[in-house]
Design a protein around this nucleic acid. Structure first.
Lengths: 146, 146
DNA sequence: GTTCCTGCAAAAGCTTTGCAGAAGA
DNA sequence: TCTTCTGCAAAGCTTTTGCAGGAAC
Protein backbone atom coordinates (compact mmCIF):
# COMPACT_ATOMS: atom_id res chain seq x y z
CA UNK A 1 0.00 0.00 0.00
CA UNK A 2 2.82 2.52 0.71
CA UNK A 3 3.80 2.43 -2.94
CA UNK A 4 6.80 4.70 -2.63
CA UNK A 5 7.79 6.38 -5.81
CA UNK A 6 11.28 7.51 -6.72
CA UNK A 7 12.33 11.14 -6.67
CA UNK A 8 12.36 11.08 -10.46
CA UNK A 9 8.84 9.74 -10.69
CA UNK A 10 7.59 12.35 -8.26
CA UNK A 11 9.38 15.13 -10.12
CA UNK A 12 7.90 13.94 -13.40
CA UNK A 13 4.45 13.88 -11.92
CA UNK A 14 4.88 17.50 -10.90
CA UNK A 15 6.19 18.47 -14.34
CA UNK A 16 3.29 16.79 -16.04
CA UNK A 17 0.99 19.06 -14.07
CA UNK A 18 2.96 22.17 -14.93
CA UNK A 19 4.50 22.50 -11.48
CA UNK A 20 8.22 23.10 -11.38
CA UNK A 21 9.80 20.35 -9.27
CA UNK A 22 11.71 22.35 -6.73
CA UNK A 23 13.46 20.53 -3.93
CA UNK A 24 10.84 21.60 -1.39
CA UNK A 25 7.94 20.55 -3.56
CA UNK A 26 9.39 17.15 -4.34
CA UNK A 27 10.09 16.57 -0.67
CA UNK A 28 6.57 17.49 0.36
CA UNK A 29 5.18 15.19 -2.29
CA UNK A 30 7.52 12.41 -1.23
CA UNK A 31 6.39 12.84 2.35
CA UNK A 32 2.74 12.58 1.33
CA UNK A 33 3.52 9.54 -0.80
CA UNK A 34 5.29 7.74 2.05
CA UNK A 35 3.12 8.94 4.94
CA UNK A 36 -0.46 8.25 4.04
CA UNK A 37 -1.66 9.10 7.50
CA UNK A 38 -3.45 12.37 6.64
CA UNK A 39 -0.72 14.54 8.10
CA UNK A 40 -1.25 18.08 9.29
CA UNK A 41 0.94 20.94 8.11
CA UNK A 42 2.79 20.72 11.41
CA UNK A 43 3.56 17.06 10.93
CA UNK A 44 4.89 17.63 7.42
CA UNK A 45 6.89 20.65 8.48
CA UNK A 46 8.24 18.96 11.59
CA UNK A 47 9.54 16.06 9.57
CA UNK A 48 10.98 17.95 6.62
CA UNK A 49 12.70 20.63 8.68
CA UNK A 50 15.23 17.98 9.64
CA UNK A 51 16.13 17.42 6.01
CA UNK A 52 15.71 21.04 4.89
CA UNK A 53 16.76 23.22 7.82
CA UNK A 54 15.78 26.42 6.02
CA UNK A 55 12.24 25.24 5.26
CA UNK A 56 9.46 27.57 6.28
CA UNK A 57 5.91 26.71 7.10
CA UNK A 58 4.78 29.21 4.50
CA UNK A 59 6.35 27.08 1.82
CA UNK A 60 4.57 24.01 3.10
CA UNK A 61 1.27 25.90 2.98
CA UNK A 62 1.97 27.27 -0.48
CA UNK A 63 2.98 23.87 -1.77
CA UNK A 64 -0.01 22.07 -0.37
CA UNK A 65 -2.40 24.66 -1.75
CA UNK A 66 -0.77 24.32 -5.13
CA UNK A 67 -1.04 20.54 -4.99
CA UNK A 68 -4.67 20.81 -3.98
CA UNK A 69 -5.44 23.18 -6.86
CA UNK A 70 -3.83 20.70 -9.22
CA UNK A 71 -5.93 17.91 -7.78
CA UNK A 72 -2.94 15.96 -6.48
CA UNK A 73 -3.95 16.15 -2.86
CA UNK A 74 -7.17 16.63 -1.03
CA UNK A 75 -7.54 18.87 2.01
CA UNK A 76 -9.56 17.26 4.78
CA UNK A 77 -11.41 19.49 7.21
CA UNK A 78 -12.86 16.70 9.30
CA UNK A 79 -12.24 18.67 12.44
CA UNK A 80 -12.43 22.38 12.25
CA UNK A 81 -9.17 23.51 13.74
CA UNK A 82 -6.54 22.02 11.49
CA UNK A 83 -6.43 20.81 7.92
CA UNK A 84 -5.11 17.41 6.97
CA UNK A 85 -3.74 16.41 3.61
CA UNK A 86 -4.28 13.30 1.67
CA UNK A 87 -2.76 12.12 -1.59
CA UNK A 88 -5.60 11.72 -4.03
CA UNK A 89 -6.50 8.09 -4.43
CA UNK A 90 -9.51 6.05 -5.34
CA UNK A 91 -12.77 6.42 -3.45
CA UNK A 92 -12.42 6.00 0.26
CA UNK A 93 -13.90 7.40 3.41
CA UNK A 94 -12.22 8.80 6.50
CA UNK A 95 -12.84 7.69 10.04
CA UNK A 96 -11.68 10.03 12.78
CA UNK A 97 -11.26 8.73 16.30
CA UNK A 98 -12.68 11.23 18.75
CA UNK A 99 -10.29 10.17 21.48
CA UNK A 100 -6.88 9.83 19.87
CA UNK A 101 -7.57 12.02 16.84
CA UNK A 102 -6.15 9.58 14.34
CA UNK A 103 -7.71 9.36 10.93
CA UNK A 104 -8.20 6.00 9.25
CA UNK A 105 -9.08 5.23 5.66
CA UNK A 106 -11.74 2.75 4.74
CA UNK A 107 -12.97 1.61 1.39
CA UNK A 108 -16.38 2.84 0.44
CA UNK A 109 -18.28 3.03 -2.79
CA UNK A 110 -19.72 6.51 -2.60
CA UNK A 111 -21.62 6.00 -5.83
CA UNK A 112 -23.53 3.17 -4.24
CA UNK A 113 -25.18 5.60 -1.86
CA UNK A 114 -28.81 6.28 -2.50
CA UNK A 115 -28.84 10.04 -3.01
CA UNK A 116 -31.72 12.12 -4.27
CA UNK A 117 -32.62 15.70 -5.08
CA UNK A 118 -29.36 16.44 -6.86
CA UNK A 119 -30.46 16.87 -10.44
CA UNK A 120 -28.98 20.11 -11.70
CA UNK A 121 -26.00 19.91 -9.36
CA UNK A 122 -22.54 19.41 -10.82
CA UNK A 123 -20.70 17.22 -8.35
CA UNK A 124 -16.90 17.49 -8.39
CA UNK A 125 -16.04 15.92 -5.06
CA UNK A 126 -17.60 13.43 -2.68
CA UNK A 127 -16.36 13.01 0.89
CA UNK A 128 -17.48 10.60 3.55
CA UNK A 129 -16.50 11.19 7.16
CA UNK A 130 -17.25 8.89 10.04
CA UNK A 131 -16.46 9.61 13.67
CA UNK A 132 -16.34 7.46 16.76
CA UNK A 133 -13.80 5.32 18.55
CA UNK A 134 -11.09 3.35 16.84
CA UNK A 135 -10.47 -0.26 17.94
CA UNK A 136 -7.57 0.71 20.19
CA UNK A 137 -9.44 3.44 22.04
CA UNK A 138 -12.80 1.69 22.05
CA UNK A 139 -11.40 -1.35 23.82
CA UNK A 140 -10.17 0.79 26.70
CA UNK A 141 -13.73 1.49 27.85
CA UNK A 142 -13.05 5.00 29.03
CA UNK A 143 -15.40 7.90 28.55
CA UNK A 144 -14.46 10.36 25.90
CA UNK A 145 -13.03 13.48 27.53
CA UNK A 146 -14.70 16.67 26.39
CA UNK B 1 -40.16 21.59 6.48
CA UNK B 2 -39.43 24.67 8.62
CA UNK B 3 -41.35 23.18 11.49
CA UNK B 4 -41.12 26.13 13.83
CA UNK B 5 -41.54 25.30 17.44
CA UNK B 6 -42.83 27.61 20.10
CA UNK B 7 -40.61 29.24 22.68
CA UNK B 8 -42.06 26.90 25.29
CA UNK B 9 -41.33 23.82 23.26
CA UNK B 10 -37.77 24.95 22.67
CA UNK B 11 -37.28 25.77 26.34
CA UNK B 12 -38.62 22.37 27.31
CA UNK B 13 -36.29 20.66 24.89
CA UNK B 14 -33.39 22.42 26.57
CA UNK B 15 -34.60 21.50 30.03
CA UNK B 16 -34.98 17.88 29.05
CA UNK B 17 -31.30 17.86 28.16
CA UNK B 18 -30.29 19.50 31.42
CA UNK B 19 -29.57 22.88 29.83
CA UNK B 20 -31.04 25.87 31.57
CA UNK B 21 -33.20 27.74 29.06
CA UNK B 22 -31.73 31.22 29.27
CA UNK B 23 -33.01 33.88 26.91
CA UNK B 24 -29.87 33.70 24.78
CA UNK B 25 -29.95 29.94 24.51
CA UNK B 26 -33.60 29.79 23.55
CA UNK B 27 -33.06 32.47 20.93
CA UNK B 28 -30.10 30.65 19.40
CA UNK B 29 -32.11 27.45 19.30
CA UNK B 30 -35.08 29.27 17.80
CA UNK B 31 -32.83 30.71 15.12
CA UNK B 32 -31.48 27.29 14.25
CA UNK B 33 -34.99 25.88 14.20
CA UNK B 34 -36.26 28.57 11.81
CA UNK B 35 -33.13 28.98 9.68
CA UNK B 36 -32.09 25.58 8.49
CA UNK B 37 -29.53 27.01 6.13
CA UNK B 38 -26.40 25.85 7.99
CA UNK B 39 -25.64 29.29 9.39
CA UNK B 40 -22.22 30.42 10.51
CA UNK B 41 -21.62 31.99 13.91
CA UNK B 42 -21.55 35.36 12.21
CA UNK B 43 -24.95 34.83 10.64
CA UNK B 44 -26.49 33.78 13.92
CA UNK B 45 -24.88 36.62 15.83
CA UNK B 46 -25.73 39.20 13.16
CA UNK B 47 -29.37 38.27 13.30
CA UNK B 48 -29.78 37.94 17.05
CA UNK B 49 -27.88 41.10 17.94
CA UNK B 50 -30.91 43.03 16.64
CA UNK B 51 -33.14 41.33 19.19
CA UNK B 52 -30.56 41.11 21.98
CA UNK B 53 -28.37 44.22 21.71
CA UNK B 54 -26.09 43.07 24.51
CA UNK B 55 -25.39 39.69 22.93
CA UNK B 56 -21.76 38.74 22.56
CA UNK B 57 -20.24 36.37 20.06
CA UNK B 58 -18.67 34.49 22.95
CA UNK B 59 -22.13 33.53 24.13
CA UNK B 60 -23.05 32.30 20.67
CA UNK B 61 -19.92 30.16 20.62
CA UNK B 62 -20.52 28.86 24.13
CA UNK B 63 -24.12 28.07 23.35
CA UNK B 64 -23.40 26.28 20.12
CA UNK B 65 -20.67 24.20 21.70
CA UNK B 66 -23.03 23.25 24.48
CA UNK B 67 -25.73 22.29 21.99
CA UNK B 68 -23.24 20.24 20.01
CA UNK B 69 -22.09 18.42 23.15
CA UNK B 70 -25.71 17.62 23.91
CA UNK B 71 -26.20 16.30 20.39
CA UNK B 72 -28.80 18.92 19.48
CA UNK B 73 -26.78 20.45 16.70
CA UNK B 74 -24.02 19.25 14.46
CA UNK B 75 -21.00 21.36 13.57
CA UNK B 76 -20.12 21.19 9.89
CA UNK B 77 -16.54 21.80 8.86
CA UNK B 78 -17.09 21.36 5.16
CA UNK B 79 -14.73 24.21 4.43
CA UNK B 80 -11.90 24.78 6.79
CA UNK B 81 -12.20 28.42 7.68
CA UNK B 82 -15.59 28.70 9.31
CA UNK B 83 -17.89 26.29 11.09
CA UNK B 84 -21.54 25.93 10.20
CA UNK B 85 -24.27 24.66 12.45
CA UNK B 86 -27.09 22.36 11.69
CA UNK B 87 -30.01 21.23 13.82
CA UNK B 88 -29.71 17.48 14.15
CA UNK B 89 -32.15 15.76 11.87
CA UNK B 90 -32.45 12.47 10.08
CA UNK B 91 -29.75 11.25 7.72
CA UNK B 92 -28.85 13.70 5.05
CA UNK B 93 -25.80 14.84 3.19
CA UNK B 94 -24.47 18.33 2.54
CA UNK B 95 -23.64 19.79 -0.83
CA UNK B 96 -21.46 22.88 -0.82
CA UNK B 97 -21.33 25.07 -3.92
CA UNK B 98 -17.75 26.08 -4.60
CA UNK B 99 -18.81 29.32 -6.24
CA UNK B 100 -21.51 30.83 -4.04
CA UNK B 101 -20.61 28.93 -0.86
CA UNK B 102 -24.17 27.92 -0.10
CA UNK B 103 -24.78 24.58 1.54
CA UNK B 104 -27.69 22.43 0.45
CA UNK B 105 -29.15 19.38 2.11
CA UNK B 106 -29.95 16.24 0.24
CA UNK B 107 -31.43 13.01 1.37
CA UNK B 108 -29.03 10.12 1.51
CA UNK B 109 -29.10 6.74 3.12
CA UNK B 110 -25.63 6.55 4.60
CA UNK B 111 -26.22 3.02 5.79
CA UNK B 112 -26.74 1.89 2.21
CA UNK B 113 -23.11 2.68 1.46
CA UNK B 114 -20.90 -0.30 0.95
CA UNK B 115 -18.22 0.23 3.59
CA UNK B 116 -15.60 -2.28 4.64
CA UNK B 117 -12.74 -2.69 7.05
CA UNK B 118 -14.56 -1.12 9.98
CA UNK B 119 -14.98 -4.06 12.30
CA UNK B 120 -13.82 -2.97 15.72
CA UNK B 121 -14.70 0.67 15.13
CA UNK B 122 -17.48 2.27 17.14
CA UNK B 123 -19.19 4.68 14.77
CA UNK B 124 -21.05 7.55 16.40
CA UNK B 125 -21.42 9.92 13.46
CA UNK B 126 -21.56 9.65 9.69
CA UNK B 127 -21.18 12.68 7.45
CA UNK B 128 -21.40 12.93 3.69
CA UNK B 129 -20.11 16.04 1.95
CA UNK B 130 -20.36 16.73 -1.76
CA UNK B 131 -18.86 19.72 -3.53
CA UNK B 132 -19.38 21.21 -6.93
CA UNK B 133 -21.69 23.76 -8.52
CA UNK B 134 -25.28 24.31 -7.53
CA UNK B 135 -27.91 24.62 -10.29
CA UNK B 136 -27.89 28.41 -10.17
CA UNK B 137 -24.13 28.76 -10.44
CA UNK B 138 -23.63 25.85 -12.81
CA UNK B 139 -26.00 27.30 -15.37
CA UNK B 140 -23.93 30.47 -15.57
CA UNK B 141 -21.07 28.64 -17.30
CA UNK B 142 -18.31 30.67 -15.68
CA UNK B 143 -15.05 29.23 -14.50
CA UNK B 144 -14.68 28.86 -10.78
CA UNK B 145 -12.41 31.61 -9.46
CA UNK B 146 -9.54 30.36 -7.37
C1' DG C 1 -25.64 32.73 49.39
C1' DT C 2 -24.13 29.99 46.07
C1' DT C 3 -23.98 28.59 41.55
C1' DC C 4 -24.41 29.42 36.88
C1' DC C 5 -24.38 32.63 32.94
C1' DT C 6 -23.05 36.56 30.16
C1' DG C 7 -19.95 39.37 27.68
C1' DC C 8 -15.77 42.20 27.33
C1' DA C 9 -10.99 41.85 26.44
C1' DA C 10 -7.18 39.30 25.50
C1' DA C 11 -4.95 35.26 23.95
C1' DA C 12 -4.35 31.29 21.07
C1' DG C 13 -4.01 28.83 16.88
C1' DC C 14 -4.15 28.09 11.91
C1' DT C 15 -3.56 30.22 7.52
C1' DT C 16 -2.65 33.94 4.27
C1' DT C 17 -0.29 38.02 2.53
C1' DG C 18 3.59 41.38 1.59
C1' DC C 19 7.93 41.65 0.37
C1' DA C 20 12.97 41.21 -0.29
C1' DG C 21 16.46 38.20 -1.40
C1' DA C 22 17.72 33.87 -3.74
C1' DA C 23 17.38 30.47 -7.21
C1' DG C 24 16.40 28.83 -11.67
C1' DA C 25 15.56 29.23 -16.88
C1' DT D 1 17.93 39.16 -17.49
C1' DC D 2 13.57 37.89 -16.21
C1' DT D 3 10.58 35.02 -14.02
C1' DT D 4 9.60 32.07 -10.34
C1' DC D 5 10.32 30.48 -5.68
C1' DT D 6 11.48 30.70 -0.80
C1' DG D 7 10.98 32.20 3.79
C1' DC D 8 10.72 35.81 7.32
C1' DA D 9 7.59 38.89 9.45
C1' DA D 10 3.26 40.62 9.98
C1' DA D 11 -1.52 40.51 9.47
C1' DG D 12 -6.13 38.20 9.24
C1' DC D 13 -9.66 35.21 10.98
C1' DT D 14 -12.04 32.09 13.65
C1' DT D 15 -12.37 30.29 18.12
C1' DT D 16 -11.16 29.81 23.01
C1' DT D 17 -9.97 31.43 27.64
C1' DG D 18 -9.78 34.53 31.84
C1' DC D 19 -12.35 37.06 34.53
C1' DA D 20 -15.62 40.33 36.70
C1' DG D 21 -20.23 41.66 37.05
C1' DG D 22 -24.91 40.07 36.95
C1' DA D 23 -28.76 36.82 36.96
C1' DA D 24 -31.03 32.76 38.48
C1' DC D 25 -32.25 29.46 41.96
Amino acid sequence: MPMRRSIEELANELKSLGIRPSHQRVKVLEYLDCNRCHPTVDMIYGSLIRQIPTLSKTTVYNTLNQFADAGMVRALTIDGNEARYDITVEDHGHFRCERCGDVFDFKIDVDSMAAEDLSGFQITDKSVYFKGLCPGCGSKQINIPK
